[in-house]
């Protein structure tokens, strides 16, 4: 049950998207999010939607993989959608008892949920086509200027990539410990909030112990392979912009111009 989270799960394939520089992908994701939240009419929405589906098509990642990420936020989506639907004042278009749906409410609900869905899918396109290491490399390089103000950019990005590597392992471990405690009669489901929290102790303590043990092992393994911080480190695949990346940037700029031109015109 816990194994199906796609977070930080890279999908290996050969596509234009996979070979793009992570900085391009980070920037385009940012642009995508900003434009997504500037959407206020159907035409703009269509532009975002078509662009996204074009990109998904280019990624060679099965669509079902991206939808998987949505499963974990279904409840959130429904709640947010319902709140918007019923609690937004405006011209009533439908009413049933104390429940009323206004025109603005309907519009907001649709906009809100579709925005959330596209947001998740859009960002998962990035994480599915970029290895966590490339991603952190991209961040490290993009935010490199922060080093001048003594922000340990390299260390932070190393921590991020290690965290991403260990998330699936710890998820599996959680699953295992949960089963082991259930076999000893532990109950993780019933009871009120406080009882539930108390019942988590047999799960959380072993999980923390295990995480510390792994951290300890890993630090030895890293030291044994001469890790000594970012100084003097080379890269197997240093980030270098290729002509492909330049073209990608041109596409992104074109997209921004078209999007805001349409927004201004309509």
């Amino acid at each position: 049950m816990l194994r199906e989270i796609t977070l930080g799960q890279y999908y290996p394939a050969k596509s234009i998207l996979h070979s793009l520089d992570p900085r391009v992908k980070l920037f385009s994701t940012l642009v995508f999010i900003i434009t997504l939240f500037s959407v206020d009419n159907v035409v703009l929405f269509a532009i975002v939607l078509v662009t996204l589906f074009g990109i998904i098509k280019m990624s060679h990642v099965p669509f079902s993989f991206m939808v998987k990420g949505l499963r974990s936020i279904v409840v959130l989506l429904i709640i947010a959608g319902l709140f918007n639907l019923f609690l937004t004042p405006g011209i009533t278009i439908f009413s049933f008892g104390f429940l009323t749906i206004s025109d603005v409410g309907l519009k907001n609900a649709v906009l809100m949920t579709s925005r959330m869905i596209l947001l998740i899918i859009g960002t998962s396109v990035m994480t599915l086509t970029t290895t966590p290491n490339q991603l952190t490399d991209g961040l490290e390089k993009s935010l490199g200027f922060l080093k001048k103000v003594n922000v340990p950019v390299h260390e932070i990005s190393m921590m991020m990539s290690i965290a991403l590597r260990f998330i699936p392992i710890l998820i599996e471990e959680t699953d295992k410990i949960m089963k082991a405690q259930m076999a000893r009669g532990a109950d993780f489901e019933s009871g009120g909030l406080i009882k539930k929290a108390k019942n988590m102790v047999p799960l959380l303590v072993p999980l923390f112990v295990s995480a510390f043990r792994r951290a300890n092992d890993l630090s030895y393994a890293m030291e044994a392979r001469c890790y000594n911080g970012g100084e003097g480190r080379t890269k197997m695949r240093p980030l270098k912009y290729s002509s492909l990346d330049q073209r990608a940037y041109i596409c992104i700029v074109a997209y921004i111009i078209i999007f805001y031109a349409v927004k201004v015109v309509l």
Partner: peptide, 16 residues
Amino acid sequence: IIASVVDEDVAFGPEN
């Protein structure tokens, strides 16, 4: 294993 892809992990030592 430090990296999330096999070859990036093998490269970790030489990079260091």
